[in-house]
């Protein structure tokens, strides 16, 4: 992945997560991954198109998803949730949208043109994502509510 793309995603993820949870956010060490990997329980995915092709995936456990969604809803003075209902899923989808949207805006200002696809959310137990043939950048984020892994795979159109 081009190095110019990395910071916008890291900054956007850090900024948005801090803003919506209003708590401490700690960024873990970035690394690259290309093997198929287990999904923690809730995965929100957004496709990228334009000059590039790729996707952004937010991965977390159900418990973390519920807590993060509650924190977001709390911020809007909406009743917190106890399980991952429609409202919860919509919140996590929105979180993915906010992070990716802000990153793409930053990238646009640097002269890179990206388009987004509408987000989708997957939930379930024992899920695995297999996109071998794709190398992804992993940005681990530690929140008070748990861990969120932001998994970004982008490549140039040749």
């Amino acid at each position: 992945m081009r190095v110019e793309y990395i910071n916008p995603f890291v900054e956007a993820a850090y900024g948005i997560l801090k803003e919506v949870t209003r708590g401490e956010v700690k960024r873990g060490e970035l690394y690259l991954k290309s093997t198929s990997m287990p999904v923690l329980g809730v995965a929100a995915i957004i496709g990228l198109a334009g000059d590039v092709e790729g996707r952004v995936l937010l991965d977390m456990t159900k418990d973390t998803a519920v807590k993060v969604a509650s924190a977001m809803l709390d911020g809007m003075e909406v009743e917190p949730i106890t399980q991952l209902n429609e409202m919860g899923k919509a919140s996590i989808t929105e979180l993915a949208n906010m992070i990716t949207g802000q990153a793409v805006t930053k990238l646009h200002n640097l002269g890179f043109k990206f388009d987004l696809t509408p987000p989708a959310i997957f939930t379930g137990d024992n899920m695995e994502i297999a996109d071998t043939g794709v190398e992804a950048l992993i940005v681990p984020m530690e929140l008070e509510q748990g861990k969120i892994e932001i998994n970004v795979a982008i490549r140039e159109r040749n």
Binding site: V3, I6, L32, E135, L137, E156
Partner: peptide
Amino acid sequence: IFFEYHDITHPNAVP
């Protein structure tokens, strides 16, 4: 030049 953060042992999406 495209500078990429990339591990060459992973799949290489180059022409």
